[in-house]
């Protein structure tokens, strides 16, 4: 049933965010540490596990697939609720700092990408 997929997804997200909050408390920061990432790992592991022990029915997969497909529309809605005014109107320093951080981070991607790949070429 479709709800099984949605429920599985919900379970993964709640568990992940809960662990992320606990992690945040443990290291003493006021933020969720990787909650969504942990939830994703959980979902990947559970869905890979199911190939061997129990199989997710097709309707169940549809329950997850629907939300995965809703991702872009949700991101569009997210863009429409950003505080763009605050980003633009608060003066040059904030804009320069933001732009510079992005530019430097973009430039680092090819540098770091080489690392993991390099190990493979060596072998």
């Amino acid at each position: 049933m479709v709800i099984y997929g949605v429920a599985l997804l919900s379970f993964c997200m709640l568990a992940g965010v809960f662990v992320g909050d606990l992690l945040g408390d443990l290291i003493g920061v006021q933020a969720n540490v990787g909650g969504v990432g942990i939830a994703m790992l959980l979902l990947i592991v559970l869905s890979n596990l199911s190939h061997t022990r129990f199989t997710l029915g097709e309707p169940t997969e549809k329950g997850i697939g629907f939300w995965s497909a809703m991702y872009i529309p949700i991101v569009v809605a997210m863009a429409a609720k950003q505080n763009v005014i605050a980003a633009i109107s608060s003066g040059w320093m904030a804009i320069v700092a933001g732009v510079a951080a992005v530019a430097v981070s973009f430039a680092m991607i090819p540098v770091l990408s080489r690392f993991g790949k390099g190990e493979q070429h060596d072998s």
Partner: peptide, 23 residues
């Protein structure tokens, strides 16, 4: 739009995209 684009739905959809990712 604020609800749809809020952190709850955003994170839910992000987690859903992990389905089918390569381990």
């Amino acid at each position: 739009v604020g609800v749809m684009g809020g952190a709850m739905f955003r994170d839910f959809a992000i987690v859903a995209t992990a389905f089918g990712a390569e381990l």
